[in-house]
Amino acid sequence: MTYKYDNVYIKDTYTICGMYEKDGPLGKYFDRKYDNDLYYKQKSWEKAEIKLLKDNLKFLLKKVNLTEDDINLVISGDLENQLAASDYALREYNIPFLGIFNACATSAEGLIIGSTFIDSKKVDNCIVATVSHNMSAEKQFRNPTEYGTPKPKTATFTATGAASALLTSEKSDIKIESSTIGRVIDMGISDVNHMGAVMAPAAADTIYRHLNSLGRDPSYYDLILTGDLGIYGKNILLEYLKKQYKLDISKNYNDCGVMLYDLDKQPVLAGGSGPVCSALVNFGYILKQMKNKNLKRVLIVPTGAIFSPTMTFQKETIPAIAHAVSLEVVS
């Protein structure tokens, strides 16, 4: 399932980050920082998350100087039950909306769906967005936010923020060149505190199939960027790719979960996670690097552990998915 696109471009992006992301090494690349607290004058974590996305879309439209009438489609997803953050944020907008869920791989799923719509000339433009909030994710997937338990070193930290990208058929600096849709992979890991181990095989499968079906060598890309495997998952991926696929990507490889935070100084354990983690890094930092021509070809591979806490309690192992999207600077 690898497709090439002819006429899909990223016109612009907008990123809003929270206080922890602001203090990370990429903090200065984000358009707006909500750094006073995590409530943003809202009454609950969920409402704060809705506000993040609502504001993000508002500022994106302002940045590109368009109104909601000019946008053909919004594709968005988050971690809340029933995609609450996206659904409730989009109430405010008069734009056709598709809600999607792929956990932390949501932004890639959105880019692929959006690109396919534009490539097949069904729409001229669309916004791909995603949002996550550390506290509402904790409440959704783990324990009450104020509840403290000692966590293992492999646990990750859900990023807070919202990120969106405007895709158009109109030519711009950065092109979505091709994409590979991932398969659901489960290698028998059931530890919810070790998502890197859960997702690495999915990333490996997608990277291998992408390179293989296009007949490319890893060196074709300036950077291959998984997100978000974390510091341990990153090493697992490299070793697994070598053993299983005889593929060495270590020269031009990095992971969004590791890049978003300063792992030595911030309390994030193995690194960042959540749908917005890879979206912040890709839409905020990577695309700016590409606009400045520091990077020309980048393969982003957002990874998601698509698990349900109910199934984990019923002793199921955790399925994972990863989609690859190839971005190129148009010369």
Binding site: Y232, I236, K243
Partner: peptide, 18 residues
């Protein structure tokens, strides 16, 4: 690759809790 074999790679790259 078998799941058992993958588990070995995971264990190799997982830090020991003290």
């Amino acid at each position: 690759m078998q799941k058992q074999e993958y588990k070995k790679i995971v264990d190799n790259n997982t830090p020991k809790e003290n």
